[in-house]
């Protein structure tokens, strides 16, 4: 059998598949994406208008007037202002994130090290990550927030509920983040370690200058995931009686019989996470192109 089959011969293979995606390229691609976006968004909005309870739904969740009252607060009706309570969320997650990075890294480092003296510590942190990744955060919040004051241990038992919230968030998220960082550290090729050690770098310098910079680049997306999640979970601290933004939204909803305050709280969380995600994407892309582009 001859290999040089040409198009005219009858046994030439057929190269026309059923895939149509190549039809939408260039200008046609732009048109296609615009049309599909408009259709999809239109369909979602339409549901809010044609559903039998659409009007009630829109009034209950998207009432600008009540949203405004919730945002500014109303002292005589006992509504705490979202605009003030949001700072509780902001400081709780900022402090937690810094602590989580510190403890997460320490735990990851301990689990990876092979120093014999650290054996009991390694066992302890392994149990710690297993436990705190497994227990729901809500329960940890209760255990810390109600448990530590019950101990009557002076300083430890006399903190405000939001401090206990930060402790609970840090406990749970350090366990998650340590695993993310550990995966990142393990993803750095062994040759990098050998090369750094061969230059006479100490184990600490090797970690700091060679392994971590590469590990962190790899795990930025999952790390960001955990941080977004942490920011949202500051809302759980409300069960300790902390008036953070979701709780304030909830109070406004039950006072005004209108849930628009909750939607305003949701918009606050979106306003935090969306710019953060875009910024990280931008930084990752810039780092990538810098590495691949000439000087």
């Amino acid at each position: 059998m001859s290999l040089d089959t040409d198009a005219s011969s009858s046994d030439a293979p057929n190269l026309f598949g059923s895939r149509r995606s190549r039809l939408f390229v260039g200008r046609r691609g732009l048109a296609a994406s615009s049309i599909s976006t408009v259709l999809l968004v239109g369909a979602i909005v339409l549901i809010l208008f044609v559903a039998p309870g659409g009007a009630v739904f829109r009034y209950y969740f998207f009432n600008l007037h009540d949203m405004r009252i919730a945002w500014d607060g109303h002292a005589s009706q006992g509504i705490s202002a979202l605009s003030r309570s949001l700072f509780t969320n902001v400081w709780m997650f900022l402090v937690s994130e810094v602590l989580v990075l510190f403890f997460g890294l320490t735990i990851a480092w301990t689990r990876i090290s092979r120093t014999p003296v650290l054996f009991p510590v390694r066992m302890l942190v392994t149990v710690y990550t297993d436990v705190f990744r497994g227990v729901p955060l809500l329960i940890v919040v209760y255990l810390v927030g109600d448990g530590l004051p019950a101990l009557r241990l002076g300083f430890i038992s006399n903190q405000s509920p939001s401090i206990y919230g930060v402790v609970a968030l840090t406990l749970t998220y350090s366990a998650y983040v340590s695993e993310v960082l550990r995966a990142g550290i393990n993803s750095v090729p062994h040759g990098q370690l050998l090369a750094a050690r061969s230059l006479g770098l100490s184990p600490t310098s090797t970690m700091r200058r060679v392994v971590l910079p590469q590990a962190v680049r790899t795990v930025i997306p999952p790390l960001l995931n955990d941080f977004v999640s942490l920011q949202k979970d500051t809302a759980l601290v409300s069960v300790l009686g902390v008036i953070e933004i979701a709780n304030a939204g909830q109070i406004s909803a039950s006072t005004l019989f209108n849930g628009s305050g909750l939607v305003a709280a949701a918009l606050f969380f979106l306003a935090l996470t969306i710019p953060m995600t875009r910024l990280t994407d931008h930084l990752i892309e810039r780092d990538r192109s810098r590495r691949l582009a000439g000087s």
Binding site: G191, L194, A196, G200, L201, S205, V210, P213, Q214
Partner: peptide, 30 residues
């Protein structure tokens, strides 16, 4: 290791550092 340098089959340059920084790493940090 500072006095006995080893060069590898697979180069093992540090991908997150420029060529110059790759060379400076040992002298500066070790």
């Amino acid at each position: 290791r500072r006095h006995v340098a080893l060069v590898f089959q697979s180069f093992n340059l540090f991908p997150h550092l420029s060529v110059l920084d790759n060379i400076l790493l040992g002298p500066v940090y070790a």
